[in-house]
Amino acid sequence: MAKKKNVKTSVPSPKVLQELHRKMVRIRRFEESAGKMMEDGKIPGALHLYVGQEAVASGVMQHLSNKDWITSTHRGHGHLVAKGGEFKPMFAELFGRSTGYCRGKGGSMHISNMDLGMLGANGIVGGGPPIAMGAAFSNKFKKNKNVSVAFFGDGASNEGSVHEAANMAALYKLPCVFVCENNGYGEYTPQSRHQAIVDVADRASGYGMPGVICDGMDVMAVYEAAGEAIERARKGGGPTLLECKTYRYYDHVGVRGMGLNYRTDEEVEEWKNKDAIEAFEKRLVQLGVMTKKKIENVHNAINKDIEEAIAFANDSPYPLPEELLDNVYNEET
């Protein structure tokens, strides 16, 4: 089962293209605003932003319904937005308010929404894949047609948990897709210093599943490659390891992007020149799917949603002291 490169063969429908676009812009605006809110002291704790990687979450999630499960990472807001997460409870969560998706108990690193099929961001690198594998087991057990998708980074690909989950998913032929977002770094360590391979997809054959590499800055490429993998999983064909080559524009944590000592500004510029949203917007105009004006309208509407959501979060109450001990156990009988 050798790895292969995804080659784009088709153009999705205008409706799909517009949805992909909207997803990406929603993620970008959410993340940029979250960064600002952190700088303004509104968001405590550690904020790992997804700016730069929007095409991956958007292209994959386009194929999923609320009944399909995903597991995310410490860099998880983008996944939740693409899965249908609403801005208001998301900002409220990041602000630590009781109106947040997790009642202020989880914050950025644990943001989740089970109703949307999102099994949480995760503070533990490599924490997601075993859970996604378990959710896929559950889907197979219940004989439904739902799939689960595990997102993880190049750094996470070195955790034993990822190997164990992948082996089991292949062994049991589970409806599980492993999406490695290879952004070239685990924290401040470049990939060349954390693994002796260039393509994480090389490992697929060792697990006994197909490995596919795609351009993670091209939402149509991700959409197509993820579509194939998810369809195979749904039809009982077992898991796939899909590696998306991408880049984070900001620092590992926080918003600073340039002038970092572990990567060059030229490298950042190079990737920004391939920006997934800009490239896609050009393509949409070329294809006659959207006009510049229409694109602008999408941005404006999303900006307005963001403003409203931030105001909502700001006005929301903090959890009450007595809420601390809620949710430790399920007290229902």
Partner: peptide
């Protein structure tokens, strides 16, 4: 600390 995981919200962490 009380018998709960460490909460995120500063409002809860402070009393935790």
């Amino acid at each position: 600390a009380p018998f709960s995981p460490v909460p995120f919200s500063p409002a809860l962490e402070q009393i935790y």
